[in-house]
């Protein structure tokens, strides 16, 4: 570099500087786009911190934050939030227990009908929820599963199971058959090989599937709406819907509940970004 002619290095320098300027411009533009896209979420948080009498005519920034909305939200919806949490955790358990072995089998065993199974899973993902709700209502009514947490857990798992199988299978496909075979030679049964070899290797996919199972069940509205008929079991999504049902009388409480219901998604996106990003592409295409 020291021997390079002066003018040449300065040309390169200015090109680099122009490039640096361009990337900085891109970053600023990116922040602007994100700000526009996320504005409604900002507005939700802002509205939740406004004094409750002050219906909607909110300031642009909560200069005097009031937590009245949150007090009301927790008083009204605290139990519903807990219900949602229990259902979402239950759905994670059901999803992983059902989907992980299936994903392993579809990735490692040479069944002749695998392509048919994959087809069925892809189609299952496309069936409208209202079709499932329509049939489940009658069945649940007969089985006494309406207004029950187990009923909702099982139904909510339907949001995630096909997706979870696809995501975990994709990851378990990459486990070399020789590793499994070696474990089998060492005396491990199929089940041992699955639990102590495949599961640790596919850990990331397992986490991704679990996180999405949680988010899907937590966000579920349709099954909450159709498979409950009383106040007994009431997920928070339904609580929000009821807030919205008639003329909204207390916007800050509605928005506070909305913020509380958004917390899992926000926290997971920040803390577990890697897994969320993997899941966003994972289940959709393959």
């Amino acid at each position: 570099m020291t021997t390079a002619p002066l003018n040449r290095s300065s040309v390169r320098g200015s090109a680099l500087r122009r490039r640096a300027l361009k990337t900085r411009g891109s970053t600023l533009l990116g922040i602007l786009f994100l700000a526009i896209m996320l504005f409604p979420i900002y507005w939700m948080v802002n509205a939740s911190l406004q004094p409750s009498g002050n219906t909607l005519s909110a300031d642009f920034f909560p200069w005097n934050p009031s937590f009245d909305g949150y007090e009301k939200a927790i008083a009204d919806q605290g139990r519903n939030l807990l219900t949602s949490l229990i259902i979402a955790l239950g759905a994670v358990g059901v999803t992983l227990v059902i989907a992980a072995p299936a994903a392993y089998a579809l990735a490692q065993f040479k069944f002749r009908w695998i392509s048919w199974a994959m087809l069925a899973i892809l189609i299952a993902q496309m069936i409208p929820g209202v079709v499932i709700a329509n049939a489940l209502y009658a069945a649940y009514n007969n089985l006494g599963l309406l207004n029950s947490i187990p009923g909702l857990i099982l139904a909510d798992a339907s949001h995630a199971i096909p997706f979870a199988i696809l995501v975990m299978r994709a990851s378990m496909m990459s486990i070399p058959a020789s590793i499994i075979e070696a474990a089998r030679v060492d005396g491990a049964g199929q089940i041992r090989a699955f639990i102590s070899i495949a599961m640790p290797i596919a850990k990331n996919a397992l986490i991704t599937a679990g996180l999405f199972a949680f988010l899907f069940a937590w966000s579920d509205f349709l099954f909450a709406l159709t498979l409950t008929t009383t106040d007994e079991v009431r997920p928070v999504t339904l609580g929000i819907y009821q807030y919205l049902g008639t003329q909204v009388s207390n916007w800050s409480a509605v928005m506070a509940t909305a913020v509380l219901s958004s917390l899992p998604a926000i926290v997971l996106l920040v803390v577990a970004q890697k897994y969320i990003a993997a899941g966003a592409t994972g289940g959709a295409v393959k």
Partner: peptide, 28 residues
């Protein structure tokens, strides 16, 4: 560009929120 990964990941937020939350927010 710098931060592009982070910004792109944050962009997922509207999709991850419960739809009923999106409805409530947009109603306001």
């Amino acid at each position: 560009f710098p931060l592009s990964r982070f910004l792109r990941a944050m962009l997922l937020l509207p999709w991850l929120l419960p739809l009923i939350v999106a409805s409530a927010t947009w109603r306001s």
